[in-house]
Amino acid sequence: MNFDPQRREFLKGATAVSTMTLAPGVMLYARAPDEPVTGAVRWGMLIDTRLCQEDCHACVDACNTEHNLQDLGRPETDAQWIRKLNVRDPLTERSVSMPMMCQHCEHPPCEDVCPTGASFRRADGIVLVDKHTCIGCRYCMMACPYKARSFIHENLDEQLPHAPRGKGCVESCTLCVHRQDDNDHTTACADACQSDGHKANLFGDLNDSNSEISQRIREFGATQFRADLRLNTGVRYQGLF
């Protein structure tokens, strides 16, 4: 791939400019296309279950549209990158609803068990599957504590360039990595939740202490699913039990 040197210089300059603090608590991060991903950022998500409505599936619908995940009428084999999980305490009858997806662990069990290294974690915290080296053994699905992964059981058509998918490979939430690589630091699910008015889903940089996500976690605390496994998840939850 050839890069226009002038464009590269412009982007480098833009990066420097855009990482300035624009306002208290608002920091923009940008990366040129040829710049490697670094650990300077750690993308993550904060779900406030007190704001998440049980009958709302806007995040799921947005993800399905963004990545062209189709309902083939076979719920047991259809791919689900994000799902609404309802949890009820049988003692108190307290019920909580929340989106559940890949938790983008710092120490992902899927990465540990993958024989070919196809499951991997980017420096910016996004856990992905390399579709070129996934052999479809599904051991990562056995290992994931969150049931976050789907195996593609059939031929797919109408592929989207930013979300290539293929029969015989495993896939899961990418934290809309194509958007991050385009310096559009949102996700389809978080956008949908915001525009739907619930504002239960917040995406951001966990490494930036001034980011809204970091501030809210610092102020109110947040919980990791299966924190006992010490995976240091990138997705955190508020308002759990």
Partner: peptide, 9 residues
């Protein structure tokens, strides 16, 4: 807890 979802949790 009691879990449920469209993904057979």
């Amino acid at each position: 807890m009691i879990e449920s979802s469209s993904f057979f949790d």
